[in-house]
Simulated scan of single mutants.
Amino acid sequence: MRLLIVCLGNICRSPVAEGVLRARIAASSVAGQVELDSAGTGDWHVGQPPDRRSIANAAEHGVDISGLRARQLAASDYTEFDWLLCADRANLRDVRARAPRGARARSALLLDWCGLETEGEVPDPYTGGPAQFEHVFRLLDRAADGAIARLREELHLG
């Protein structure tokens, strides 16, 4: 199973989601059966590390995302991944609008896919302070529980 987590710039929400999910997957029965990456719909931050506030907040929870680098969603992602999981509706709309011919990846809101919140969005903390970054981490941490449960089901691991 290949999952790509998508937000706007790939420096706040999607790298934190990638880091949290990587840690949870590694410690679960789906370890070794899931590939994970993240990307942004925009190109402003390509090649840059996650926002320093995201790195610091994740580190406070024992998750190291400092080695990740932002990249932009590519046409090849639509054939290389099974799911494109989006932080919010605007990202989902953009992902679907950019789908090339022959795209096989399915797309959904991340929180919805994880079974956490129907039509729920991960708020962008970029213009906020520490409380917003903490809120995003806690939301994604809860979503990771649902992601693991769904992956176990989809991979027939019970």
Rank of each mutant, 00 (worst) to 15 (best):
W44V: 09
G129M: 09
V136N: 06
S76K: 12
R2P: 06
S107L: 07
P50E: 11
A59V: 09
E153Q: 12
V95C: 09
P123Q: 02
D51Y: 07
L85M: 02
S14I: 03
G62D: 04
L73H: 06
S29I: 12
Y126F: 14
D94A: 15
R98M: 15
A75E: 12
I25S: 13
Q72V: 06
T79R: 12
A97S: 14
T118K: 09
S54L: 05
D77L: 01
A103F: 08
L139A: 10
A99I: 10
S14R: 01
E121H: 00
A97H: 14
I55P: 04
G47M: 11
T79L: 08
A87D: 01
G120I: 00
F133V: 14
D51F: 04
D82H: 06
V46N: 08
V6Q: 04
R24E: 11
A31L: 11
L36Q: 11
D64I: 05
R22E: 09
A87G: 01
T127R: 15
L109K: 06
F137V: 09
L151A: 08
R152P: 14
R150K: 10
L85C: 02
P130F: 10
A97Q: 12
L140Q: 09
V20D: 07
R96H: 05
L85G: 01
R93C: 11
W44G: 10
G9H: 08
V95A: 07
I5D: 04
A59I: 04
I11W: 12
R22W: 06
H135N: 06
S14G: 01
C114G: 08
G115L: 05
L84R: 05
I148L: 11
I11G: 12
I55S: 07
D145K: 03
L84F: 10
N91S: 02
H135I: 00
R106Q: 15
L110C: 06
L109H: 03
L84N: 04
T41G: 10
L4A: 10
E119R: 10
S66I: 01
V122W: 00
Q72N: 06
E119N: 11
D112G: 00
V63T: 02
A97V: 10
A56L: 06
E134P: 15
F137Q: 07
I25N: 11
P49D: 08
R13I: 01
F81R: 10
V6P: 05
Q72T: 04
P125D: 07
E117V: 00
C86W: 07
L73S: 03
A56N: 03
D145V: 13
R69W: 01
V95G: 07
A99V: 13
L116T: 00
G120H: 00
E154M: 10
L21D: 04
R96D: 14
D37Y: 04
A87P: 00
A70H: 11
H156D: 13
R106N: 15
C12G: 03
Q72W: 04
A147E: 03
R142D: 00
V46L: 06
I11A: 10
T79A: 07
E119G: 13
W44T: 10
